[in-house]
Design a protein around this nucleic acid. Structure first.
Lengths: 135, 135
DNA sequence: GCCAGATACCTTGCATAACAATATATGTTG
DNA sequence: CAACATATATTGTTATGCAAGGTATCTGGC
């Protein structure tokens, strides 16, 4: 809305990179609650995460297209006589399988990261491969 | 070590994408335990995560270069009369600040993801923006 | 009727980063 | 001296998030 209040666009956050590979999982997960259309998903993601996660429509539509191509979602056009046409997406069986797989992969990754970061690196030393014994 | 036991390399995993933006954090974190050189970091990452996280040297060196350029690490060449020359990296003050920032960003992201995925999406319905009251 | 803004979809081009492949040089071992 | 491990570096490929632009419909104000 606001055209960027103050200089915050320079916060070249890593967030953009973090989303990589997570968006498909997010969309698949949200669709497991029933069919939905693109514009709704955009706002719902921001909603459910209280703004912590945000995606733009320019990002989402390619994601949906990828999911459709891969056979993970089915598409249905809703073109009412009155009202803007909407494209509804619904999980397929393969989509549920993929959701399950991606969830596991994400959890494994997050777990590995968390254990790495929680690690007290101060105490531990490096592998200390020695080329010559300096003893 | 094992040159890929069975057909698993076709698992065009999302893992590659998940690492996006996390590697710098990982490297900074590991360096907080003291100086280290590139080759060592590669094996240490795999080591500390029990193989769950792996990076190649072709990936790491650009990361280190980026960190150096940004002023987050200092570099020191070690060229012994005997032995392969090594390039040692050490966190700068700015590097510690960045580490702290990235850690927070990563945690915020992971938390948002976790809460989203743990969410019982079945029960919740979509925002249900209605164009016309169908009552 | 007309204009502004919200809704809803779609596409193009750019920047970034992970990685395979490749190259170089040194050290070690048989 | 050949083979392998150590150690650093670069190039080209590829994937994807996103800004920026576009189209079309509906609603409300005047």
């Amino acid at each position: 809305m606001a055209p960027d209040p103050a200089g915050r666009e320079d916060r070249r956050g890593i967030e953009r990179e973090l989303k990589r590979g997570s968006l498909e999982l997010i969309v698949l997960h949200l669709l497991s609650g029933g069919e939905a259309y693109g514009y709704d998903i955009v706002t719902t993601v921001s909603d459910r995460t209280h703004g912590a996660l945000q995606i733009t429509d320019g990002t989402l539509y390619p994601v949906l297209y990828r999911l459709e191509r891969a056979g993970f979602v089915d598409v249905r056009w809703d073109t009412p006589t009155r009202g803007v046409p909407r494209k509804y997406y619904r999980l397929t069986k393969a989509g549920r399988g993929e959701l399950s797989t991606m969830k596991e992969e994400w959890t494994a990754f997050a777990t590995a990261m968390a254990s790495l970061l929680d690690d007290d690196v101060e105490g531990k030393k490096w592998l200390l491969r020695r080329t010559s014994s300096r003893s």
